[in-house]
Design a protein around this nucleic acid. Sequence first.
DNA 1: CTTATATATTTAACATGTTAACAAAATTGC
DNA 2: GCAATTTTGTTAACATGTTAAATATATAAG
Lengths: 156, 156
Amino acid sequence: MSRDKNPDDLGHDALLPHNTRRSLPIALLRAREAVMAHFRPMLARHDITEQQWRVIRILAEAGRVDASEMADKAFILAPSLTRIIRSLEERGLISKHKDADDGRRVLLEIAPEGMRVIADVSPESRAIYEQLETRYGRERVEVLLDMLDELATLND
Amino acid sequence: MSRDKNPDDLGHDALLPHNTRRSLPIALLRAREAVMAHFRPMLARHDITEQQWRVIRILAEAGRVDASEMADKAFILAPSLTRIIRSLEERGLISKHKDADDGRRVLLEIAPEGMRVIADVSPESRAIYEQLETRYGRERVEVLLDMLDELATLND
DNA sequence: CTTATATATTTAACATGTTAACAAAATTGC
DNA sequence: GCAATTTTGTTAACATGTTAAATATATAAG
């Protein structure tokens, strides 16, 4: 019985916040969740989280990377990254070395076991993404990515 | 020195995953984070989290709401909602009652103290949102919301 | 060379996300 | 009515998000 689709129900009190159903933060959350719902079960079968997948995937793409660069590329905050690195290292998916030139920096590298995960997960991941692209429309995905990027860089 | 903008750098290994920089999940995450960066400091000044704000805001909009409906509207998973409700009730921002007709259901209602938060935060929230809308373009926000909604409902 | 400042990472503390298991109440089938 | 099933909400356990503070190393100022 919550048929609050009637526009007259809103705007009767200027103190009330923006209509929840047309709010960018929640819309972005919903969309992201819907997308991840396609990937999560597959990742779970391979016993890795979304964030762990992002990290090893970036290492497979970019080779040796320090923690700051990783935080940047994977969009993970430093404290989370510290924990994720510890976990991935304990599981033998990545290796960790101190930078010889700068003792503060931590260099990350994918391990053979990590490459095995890449080889297992990558094809499935691509297939899911391509199916998504097809269903939503390749062109529209590109448009959406551009619009999202512009939103993300509004501050710069 | 990470100038991997050259398209030739990609595609040399079909095993590698989709290019990270054009991936929907991360793009959605970045965009959402950029948007929330505008709101979070303000919410922090009022000593509430983003999720707590969503909950009391929905109660202010919709009146009495049960937990399932709240989880749905605020897009918060049940276990998280349980904790958020406990916290908000302890702080006196909301009240909680058992449904007389259905003993399983928990009915939520905003408390006077919660209404005070609404009154304090709402104008600031609106101002931030409107500034964002203006900078990004009102029309484009609408288009983006439509595209995000379609992405979120692809599965239905 | 030494002190002050800046940068990179970690730790701490708390809130939320995520899945699975559980408890309690309601509904369905017989 | 009553057992089986479904629905609602909570708890548990672990991973991540978020902010602030701490630590260690590097760089700049003097």
